[in-house]
């Protein structure tokens, strides 16, 4: 904090002492902001208004991609059925023994609204682990000059799963929903990195890495995964 001299007139030492005392008191007692700043809550409101308004110049990235749109309810219901199957296929072969438990049958999931959050927990947990692994590998991908097609493919799979989870009862938990929305945005950015453009791709990934750090995405992912595991 800088306090430069306030006037060209030589100040009275007693005045200076009193100014100092008043400044200390005022810093502590005059409309002092709390320790915790409501940054996330304010951002939600800003994002909702600045991005939703027709007059706003901002748009969701990537706005021109048809597949980026949130799936309609009927598709979400169908997707709920295949969610477990899809995630089961995404599992490494070494964990195939546990995969059948993650697959939900059509009989179990006739409508997505009827899926109990508990049934989605294993798939959500697996999803969080895989997303964390992908995002943790971003720095090395960035150093290598950008994402390759395989990396983008993994991100695309996870992006699809993110949207499915957003339209499932698992997103009823506000904190989990916020995390999913953040991940949707980040994964969409990863998917949208132009392949074969090493320089621009690297800049994109640096920006994504920066956002990940600023939003504490990885710690939040780990916390969410741990909370699901504990249930």
């Amino acid at each position: 904090m800088t306090h430069d001299s306030s006037h060209h007139v030589t100040p009275d030492p007693m005045d200076e002492l009193m100014d100092e005392r008043l400044r200390e008191l005022a810093q502590r007692h005059y409309n002092a902001p709390g320790e915790q700043l409501p940054l996330d809550a304010m951002w939600s409101a800003i994002e909702g208004e600045a991005f939703a308004s027709p007059s706003a110049t901002l748009r969701i990235v990537p706005a021109n991609a048809q597949w980026f749109r949130r799936p309609p309810r009927w598709l979400a219901a169908a997707a709920g059925i295949i969610l477990g199957v899809g995630l089961g296929r995404m599992l490494p072969h070494g964990s195939s023994g546990a995969a059948p438990q993650r697959v939900m049958s059509v009989a179990q999931v006739s409508r997505v609204d009827e899926v109990m959050p508990g049934q989605l927990q294993p798939t959500a947990n697996e999803y969080l682990d895989r997303t964390a692994a992908l995002l943790a590998s971003l720095p090395s991908e960035s150093r290598a000059g950008g994402a390759d097609a395989r990396f983008a493919g993994r991100a695309n799979d996870l992006l699809l799963t993110t949207r499915l989870l957003l339209d499932s009862p698992a997103a009823q938990d506000p904190r989990f929903r916020t995390l999913l929305e953040d991940l949707e945005l980040v994964l969409a950015q990863v998917v949208n990195i132009p392949p074969g453009q090493r320089d621009s791709g690297k800049a994109e990934m640096d920006l994504i890495n920066q956002a990940l750090e600023q939003h504490n995405v990885i710690p939040r992912l780990r916390t969410a995964a741990a909370a699901l595991s504990a249930d």
């Binding site: 901002l58 969701i60 950015q189 920006l207 994504i208 920066q210 956002a211 939003h215």
Partner: peptide
Amino acid sequence: AGDRVAARSLYD
């Protein structure tokens, strides 16, 4: 250009 992640970075 419409990048929300960048907007959040500026905001932060």
